[in-house]
Design a protein around this nucleic acid. Structure first.
Length: 137
DNA sequence: GCCAACGTTGGC
DNA sequence: GCCAACGTTGGC
């Protein structure tokens, strides 16, 4: 099992939208590095849901329920971009903000801190457990 | 609203 | 294949 972090601007697609929809195709990723991470996701992998631009916090967790397939929102380059299906798992009791994360030396190597623009990123098992503990406290 | 970081495009 | 110009993301 691997862990991930998916970013979304809440005014475009929020945690509440994910809960409403139950299953969502994570479409629209147009960055090769992010796409490659999408393609390496496996059924049952889990991810943090992060609100970017507004909120700036991890608000919950979700799970990959369908491995990568062609992104239907890309019409001009068939086969170039991929998407996965995800579902919500658990809402954090305490959202973990970016400033919280930056304040913790244990989390200084997170991609979220060091590559702010990457919208799909891996999370280590240590980082996963650490943040999960804080978020569900 | 600004700007840094990063990615992409296109001329050479 | 390099690099300048441009566009986008996202934190502040």
């Amino acid at each position: 099992m691997h862990y991930w972090l998916l970013k979304s601007e809440p005014f475009v697609f929020s945690w509440d939208n994910l809960v409403e929809n139950e299953v969502e195709s994570w479409e629209g990723v147009r960055n090769y590095q992010a796409r490659n991470y999408l393609r390496s996701m496996r059924w049952g992998d889990q991810f943090f849901f992060y609100h970017s631009n507004e909120g700036l916090c991890i608000v919950g967790t979700g799970e990959i329920v369908e491995e990568a397939f062609d992104d239907p929102s890309c019409t001009d380059h068939p086969g170039r971009w991929s998407t996965v299906n995800v579902k919500p798992l658990m809402k954090f009791k305490t959202p973990i903000s970016l400033s919280d994360i930056k304040a913790m030396p244990e989390l200084k190597d997170m991609v979220l801190v060091n590559n702010t623009r990457l919208s799909v990123q891996p999370v280590t098992e240590f980082e996963w457990n650490y943040i999960l503990k804080l978020g569900t406290f």
